[in-house]
Design a protein around this nucleic acid. Structure first.
Lengths: 115, 115
DNA sequence: CGAATAGATCGATGATCGTCAATGGATTCT
DNA sequence: AGAATCCATTGACGATCATCGATCTATTCG
């Protein structure tokens, strides 16, 4: 790169090729956390599963996710675990069935991170 | 799953375990496209690179992305290509340098997809 | 208790991803 | 033309991921 100090902000430098990068960019730890959340959304199946849950008012039973997703039961269970671990949905077992609910606050946080 | 018609909406069924899933959930093609965009955000390095670009007003030179990211030049180039292919930033070569700009409309679209 | 059901976990496999050294292409300067 | 600089591409490596069949656990019902 052109002549440029490592730490920002920097004084104007006629030799530098470009404008300085903002200091208050995403720090590394925050970036890791956000990336984990976005990774949970980086799969079409999980997006559809999440859509099933958010578009229904209230909760959705796990038993109703397997067939519309077109995947096997273990695969759906795997993906739901990822969504739960990402904090995007909550999981509650009642009797023989498992119920999922969206976590709007978490979705809000991701939306905020986009700008 | 419990007794349930494949196509929704369905009439109330006392044998069904749960409430019907909404019909207007994400269709598969849209889910694939969205997942590709979110996949571009599913990496801490790319989030920081994008942050560098969006937090600076105007454009950012590629030469200023390598050092703060802590990765090699080929790795940064690889990640920037992913961001460009996802439509999140634009790439413009002027002379010896390459300049990146954010694409707010694309970020808006992702934000909208989150709810 | 035993049978049946819902869902999670395990194990394996093929695909994709992040990373970097080496190299190549394009542009500017002398 | 020749040297230098910026950036992309290639090739290779280990790591992670998506998927499913088989199995396990927990719960309900008879």
């Amino acid at each position: 790169m052109a002549v440029r100090a490592k730490t920002l902000p920097v004084p104007a430098d006629p030799l530098a090729c470009c404008a300085p990068v903002s200091v208050d960019a995403l720090d590394e730890d925050t970036a890791v956390l956000l990336a984990q959340s976005f990774a949970a959304l980086a799969d079409p199946i999980r997006l559809r599963l999440l859509s099933f849950i958010t578009s229904a008012e209230g909760e959705v039973c796990a038993c109703d996710l397997v067939e519309p997703s077109g995947r096997s039961q273990p695969t759906v269970s795997h993906h739901m675990k990822i969504l739960v671990d990402a904090g995007l949905v909550t999981r509650e077992k009642r009797g023989l069935w498992v119920w999922y609910r969206p976590v709007p606050a978490r979705l809000d946080a991701l939306r905020a991170a986009l700008g």
